[in-house]
Amino acid sequence: MILPASTLTEDDVSATGAAAVSSVPISGSSPVARSRPGYTSLDVQLSGVGRSFGDHTVLRDVSLRVAPGEVLAILGSSGCGKSTLLRAVGGLDTGSTGEILIDGSAVQRYDERTAVGFQEPRLLPWRSIYKNVSLGLPRSLSKAEGRERVDELLELVGLKDRAALRPREISGGMAQRASLARALARRPGVLLLDEPFGALDALTRLKMQDLLLDVHAQTGTTVLLVTHDVDEALQLADRVLLLGKNAEDPTAAEGATIARLLDVPGSRPRDRASAELAALRGELFSGLGVDSHTR
């Protein structure tokens, strides 16, 4: 079954701004998407990145370059250090070794060039959706500019009609969209998403994936997406980074590193059922130590 974004409307937004969102034309998936005016996309360079907690090494020797505008999915079994890597890139965690450069300069603590979408929406329960999204605005913006940008983002994620509501009054999917809008408010050069759809039900997750593609088409920002969902990675990413122990060398040092780095073929939105993706899926599953039961 092919479900292009334009035919999908999320049930809980069908009456609000979904039409506006899904009518956005989806751009091709050239690895370097052209960003819209006002938006930037920056490259991320990792060299020998590692992270240990006490004696326990979680990550080691991660080196790779993420091109501006690229969508990189970071896949791995739970506890393998996916989130740790993402947090290091965002400057949320400063204990890592090695070098992380964004646009050629080292990552700062809570780096302003990045924005994070967490697995939980993490909205302030006492603020309206509108005010929660405004939280992400850069401080340099004037009030009028800020208002304009928040309106634009709420339109983009289809929450315009819910702007006045509190987080507890909206669904989990809507809260996650508000969280995404908040992350976009500073127009990050690198958008870091830490299993943003992991807590959502399967159907809502598919819709959110399409929304993310829309957002990426509009903003062109570089996206690092942590996920445990192989299909999500194949649907969204230009490349999939599989983190894990070195499969060829079981005696290798402790800690996850780059087990595989795969290019995902085809332009987005991709046919969820294509044979090419099925082959990659099988490869990723085996990399994750899961039997994909191919006959």
Partner: peptide, 27 residues
């Protein structure tokens, strides 16, 4: 702690973080 971290991630610290996240949360 997750809300506080989110606040920090969006550039709030010190008094502004206190007024935006911590104090309202304890009202």
């Amino acid at each position: 702690a997750q809300l506080v971290e989110a606040g920090r991630a969006f550039g709030f610290h010190g008094v502004r973080l206190l007024g935006t996240v911590q104090l309202p949360a304890v009202v």
